[in-house]
Design a protein around this nucleic acid. Structure first.
Length: 561
RNA sequence: UGGGGCGUCGUCAAGCGGUAAGACACAGGCCUUUGGAGCCUGCAUUCGGAGGUUCGAAUCCUCCCGCCCCAGCCA
């Protein structure tokens, strides 16, 4: 392990764990959990938490459970559970047989609640929701005790049993922890721990009409699972005293410890569940797996790799600072991974026809191309070459700017993997005035080497053989929003949506070797970027490629300024 | 005006009293049959501010300033 790896893999949470191991807390064991609520799809922010929790478990030879935190039937569903399972697995993590559901603990949690009542530490409160809010006080004023606070244990037990039995309407009673209505921490002002909800749960059906609240269920679920380090995000810091309070009342050994870290934000996108749902429901995107979405499903379809995402999660670090990570770091990780793994191919997005005047009519040459210029082990393929080719429209300029290295009147360029060609003349569409074809000549000796007189040819452009190339649809994706931090945007966040985040190119051509490429396969289209065969819409008859990320383009920068 | 957190390069982030890592971004250069990749160089005399302690402070102390979270029967 290099110095860099050591530094990259340490953070304040691991330091805490190191300390705990040193004092032999939990007999030196480490057990974490990733606890999503199945009411939405996982996104890159969850990926950070997944990498953290599973990463720590692996590093310390401990375990990480996958737990559905499904204590509120509203909005939770099997569809989300399935997607979560698929996404965590796709990211490369394994919880073995430890897939758990908070809803499986309902009976145990109910028993814990009774225990709390019996200890005189919880009571049934019959105030309305509005009244409870009023009694809670404000940030600067203490709350008032509920008139129901001193009900007898027997009455509480009876009422709580009848709550479970379904005798009461929603909102008529709740179970509250008896803590301190004057606490400066509002969370501690007799928090509600059970509420009545006559709503079917996607797993327990109609068995329950009372459901535990997060603060009650989470710490006890952790305890039930013998979690040692319960890692969550910063907004739960206020809840930690309550977490500890409940655990201290009900658990007497191996109490878990909650540790909070800063959630991830990424520039030019949104990561809050509410906003993501809005994008999907109002059809700003095509679904949870729209390649522009920061969801795991979206990134998977876009062609991002698990390795790239995991690497990104390692690079951003773990701390308690509010952050807005530059999306270019994510893109750099994707390029980094794909540069190594993606075989090269050629494709032309905006075709311009080139006719090689001195190339024999009807001849088709099989040109051997390396699948990866730096890695011979990736082998070679054969690409047809003929008299009629497509090149990229922007690779020809009638009046080239300075430093332009591509094809232009009087100039030569190298066709990638093939010959050097020289511009001869251009054909113009009489009606539109647009250039409709370019005539060139080729230098036959240049296939595997420089021109015979060693004259220098600077530019290299990509091409496909016009008659053998396969027509394809190529979807060019760009960032979803125009502003770095859409969540902070004054007004409706959707107004800063990038209207050009998807451009569909229907008349693109890819080289013939891509004919039967499997959905999900990724390639580098040379000089353009990384592309993958769309897993949903692509078919052999109508191939569809997604642009995963463009190549770094230093010419674009020069030309753009 | 309560409580809890956080302030180190444009963005993340190391640093844990001995004189500011690294990554991305950015800017130059080398190389190149991808203007890709790779390689090299540059990029915080300063750590929110002001005092103080110390031979020595981003690290300790005091005060101040700024930002985030908490008043769901959501998580």
């Amino acid at each position: 392990m290099t110095q860099q790896d050591i530094q990259a893999s340490s953070d304040f949470i691991r330091e805490i764990i190191d300390e705990d191991i040193k004092i032999n807390k939990h007999s030196g064991k480490v057990a974490t959990r990733f606890p999503p609520e199945p009411n939405g799809y996982l996104h890159i922010g969850h990926a950070k938490s997944i990498c953290l929790n599973f990463g720590i478990a692996k590093q310390y030879k401990g375990t990480c459970n996958l737990r559905m935190d499904d204590t509120d039937p509203a909005g939770e569903s099997l569809e989300y559970v399935d997607s979560i399972i698929q996404d965590v697995r796709w990211l490369g993590f394994d919880w073995e047989d430890r897939l758990f559901y908070a809803s499986d603990y309902f009976e145990a949690l109910y028993a814990f609640a009774i225990q709390l009542i019996k200890a005189g530490k919880a009571y049934v409160c019959s105030l309305t929701a509005d009244e409870i809010r009023e009694y809670r006080g404000t940030l600067i004023e203490p709350g008032q005790e509920s008139p129901y606070r001193n009900r007898s244990i027997e009455e509480n037990l009876d009422l709580f049993a009848r709550m479970r039995a379904g005798e009461f309407e929603d909102g008529t009673h709740v179970l509250r922890a008896k803590i301190d209505m004057a606490s400066p921490n509002i969370v501690m002002r007799d928090p509600v721990i059970y509420r009545i909800k006559h709503a079917p749960h996607y797993r327990t059906g109609n068995k329950w009409v009372v459901y535990p609240m997060y603060d009650f269920a989470h710490c006890l679920s952790d305890s039930i699972e013998n979690i040692t380090h319960s890692i969550c995000t910063l907004e739960f810091e206020n809840n930690r005293p309550l977490y500890d309070w409940i655990v201290n009342q009900l658990i007497d050994k191996n109490r878990p410890r909650q540790i909070e870290f800063a959630r991830l934000n990424v520039s030019y996108t949104v990561l809050s569940k509410r906003r993501l749902i809005e994008l999907v429901e109002n059809k700003y995107v095509a679904g949870w797996d729209d390649p522009r979405m920061p969801t795991i499903a979206g990134m998977r379809r876009r062609g991002y790799t698990p390795d790239a995402i995991r690497n990104f999660c390692g690079k951003i670090g773990v701390a308690k600072n509010e952050n807005l990570v530059d999306v270019s770091l994510l893109e750099a990780c994707v390029r980094d991974d794909l540069n190594e793994k993606a075989p090269r191919a050629m494709a032309v997005l905006r075709p311009l026809i080139v006719i090689i005047d001195n190339y024999p009519d009807g001849q088709i040459e099989k040109i051997k191309c390396a699948n990866h210029p730096q890695n011979p082990e990736m082998g070679t393929r054969t690409v047809p070459f003929s008299k009629r080719l497509f090149i990229e429209r922007e690779d020809f300029e009638e009046n080239p700017p300075k430093k332009y290295k591509r094809l232009a009147p009087g100039k030569e360029v190298r066709l990638r993997n093939a010959y050097v060609i020289r511009f001869e003349r251009l054909i113009r569409d009489e009606k539109t005035g647009e250039i409709s074809a370019i005539h060139c000549t080729y230098a036959p000796e240049t296939l595997n080497g420089p021109p015979s007189d060693d004259r220098k040819v600077e530019g290299v452009i990509h091409w496909v053989s016009a008659d053998q190339a396969i027509q394809a649809e190529i979807r060019l994706y760009d960032r979803l929003f125009n502003v770095p931090n859409p969540a902070a945007y004054e007004g409706e966040f959707t107004t800063s949506l990038n209207n050009n985040s998807l451009e569909v190119v229907t008349d693109a051509y890819v080289e013939a070797s891509l004919k039967n490429s499997a959905p999900g396969n990724s390639y580098q289209f040379e000089r353009l970027g990384y592309f993958c065969v769309d897993i949903k819409d692509s078919s052999p008859n109508k191939p569809v490629f997604n642009r995963i990320v463009p190549l770094r383009d230093s010419w674009g920068k020069i030309a753009g300024r």
